[in-house]
Nucleic acid binder design. Sequence first.
DNA 1: GTAAACATGTAACAGGTTACATGATTGT
DNA 2: ACAATCATGTAACCTGTTACATGTTTAC
Lengths: 172, 172
Amino acid sequence: MSLRHALLGLLSDRPASGYDLLKLFDTSLANVWPATQSQIYTELTKLADDGLLSVSNEGSRGRKEYSLTDEGLAELRHWLTETKPKQSVRSEILLRVFFLSVLTPEQRRGYLDNLAAISAEQYDALRRLYDSMDWDEGNLSVQGKIALEYGLRFVTMRREWAEWAAEQINQG
Amino acid sequence: MSLRHALLGLLSDRPASGYDLLKLFDTSLANVWPATQSQIYTELTKLADDGLLSVSNEGSRGRKEYSLTDEGLAELRHWLTETKPKQSVRSEILLRVFFLSVLTPEQRRGYLDNLAAISAEQYDALRRLYDSMDWDEGNLSVQGKIALEYGLRFVTMRREWAEWAAEQINQG
DNA sequence: GTAAACATGTAACAGGTTACATGATTGT
DNA sequence: ACAATCATGTAACCTGTTACATGTTTAC
């Protein structure tokens, strides 16, 4: 049920509409907790029904601005402090590694080389994002920086691992 | 649809029953692509219907042993070489980082310290698994080793990052 | 006027989880 | 005899994705 909490979290910074939130998901949370337009609108309605959000303003074009209620903030805090994050484990990339033996040595090597290359590209993309960020807007800034650093370290680790694995498999 | 391919992959090594596969998921693939008993049995039936598997043997207690068909092997190879793995991005751990600002400095610090501690424990657990493994059984051995190395590097990276992040947040 | 952006909502489907339900065989 | 393990199957529910559907406002 983390989508709920992602919405509560974003609204803890400032009130926003479904449309605003959609864009926040597509930018700041895209690589952490993606969500679709459909999901966001459905969940906002439920959250308001449950009293965790309130419609604080209605604008033109049917725009509804949601605000976090006291109950919503309490729920957000409860989630952060009293529940354990479950680490999602599923990795299709790693799953494939298990079955590389059905391929030729060249194909195996190709898979890992490609993985290293992709990781290197992702590093560059994150690096560019890092450099282009305006590191001074709202509460999400410090945390955004920390999350980006995680991404940079992660793709670096994966590139190095893929390079190492390509060597290992070459010997086999 | 990776569960399909995980099953095909495991059966590329040797024929097995649903029950056998369930245990393979709970051991070798537990940290890569978990699956429930319910899911496995349902999918095996579908795969046999689709001709990618065949029931190669029926044993006592209703045991059905499945084998990969030529078509199944072709599908596995196709998946490995012609389709792109989609990297699952969702990370509840990272999502929480974004919203730490609603907590007190002590609570924030506690979250990251705990994350570092958990990562260190996971390192030890993987290390023990690594040391206890019999590195000489079947085709999955080399790949299993490579996957474990990934796990070791990943939790190390996460511990170091959490330690670094705790410092960053302390300054803010 | 018309295209782009704003803005919301719903329906069908796919994948995964939990729980229920049943029965056979082996080891002590 | 009894418990543990082997062995399979189904139903209800939850989450997430894709596609459909509609209408308004702004900028050129």
